[in-house]
Design a protein around this nucleic acid. Structure first.
Lengths: 145, 145
DNA sequence: ATAATAAAAGATATTTTTGTCCTTTATTAT
DNA sequence: ATAATAAAGGACAAAAATATCTTTTATTAT
């Protein structure tokens, strides 16, 4: 894989899409979301279930139901999505998997690796879910793979 | 997982260890390597087989045989190890898995993500296998997890 | 030549990730 | 109240990553 798991990729794409639709005042069903972000429907459903359980997104059952994201959700960082679906392993630990490796006992790769991870952390912590709506709306961007 | 697969982690640790031992003029058996870098022996054997096949390390069968790394190997970048065992996916592609995402059609995360990946690429391309020997030898470093 | 050693190669097993399907629960509209 | 809709939940399936075991091949020492 790339840097993130497929699960995390789907999750991010879906949340962006839901945010966009919520911004338009719409709730969105799993079918539409899955199509829009090009992910397997049933699998994505599980992922959204999880995000909903931790309160990152909201859901309503029944007719006119669907997924949406409330105002507080717009301010949450992407990091929360990643953590919700694949834990925080990407934010910590040694690049080579050495458990002793730390600031006091750095492995040979430590400093260079830290830079890379800091950048990822920065990206995920400083970017909020809501932040993309304007970009997504004004641009020719899709979330469809 | 972290950023790299377990396979890649084992591979890097093992190659460093082999490099170190080769620097001391020794060939090393799989058993010793696996113990030293704390990885499952039979699994690591497969990994080293692969690295040996692509010429990143050398091996000799029979008594006094084992793995070693020749002078040209010392100058190869870590990137080669990673590519040999898990391909080049870590060096390319969109952070969210969007196929259209590129310099011309960047996804919302594109620029920030690029920074992170550039740093990883830099680290893996600019660091050679041999480079750590001095550090490993003078320091109190282990490769044992 | 023979026995011992150590990696290569092949087959198989386990675990994790990814993916599907079916039933249940909540909500809405009639 | 009943039917229709849509997510939640549980059970199961396939694929990929991780791991083990057994046999074969090459090399060395006796």
């Amino acid at each position: 894989m790339g840097i993130f798991s497929k699960t995390a990729e789907y999750a991010m794409r879906a949340v962006f899409y839901i945010a966009q639709r919520s911004h338009e005042g719409q709730r969105t069903g799993i079918k539409e979301i899955a199509e829009a972000v090009n992910s397997p429907e049933a699998f994505l459903a599980k992922i959204l279930q999880r995000l909903s359980k931790v309160g990152l997104i909201q859901s309503i059952k029944g007719p006119n139901g669907g997924f949406y994201i409330d105002i507080s959700g717009f301010n949450r960082p992407l990091a929360d999505i990643v953590i919700a679906v694949e834990g925080d392993t990407i934010f910590k630990g040694c690049g080579m998997g050495l458990s002793y490796c730390s600031e006091e006992f750095p492995c040979p790769l430590h400093d260079e690796f830290k830079k890379a991870r800091n950048q990822i952390t920065l990206m995920l912590r400083n970017t909020t879910i809501g932040q993309f709506n304007t970009e997504l709306i004004k641009g020719h961007l899709t979330l469809n793979k």
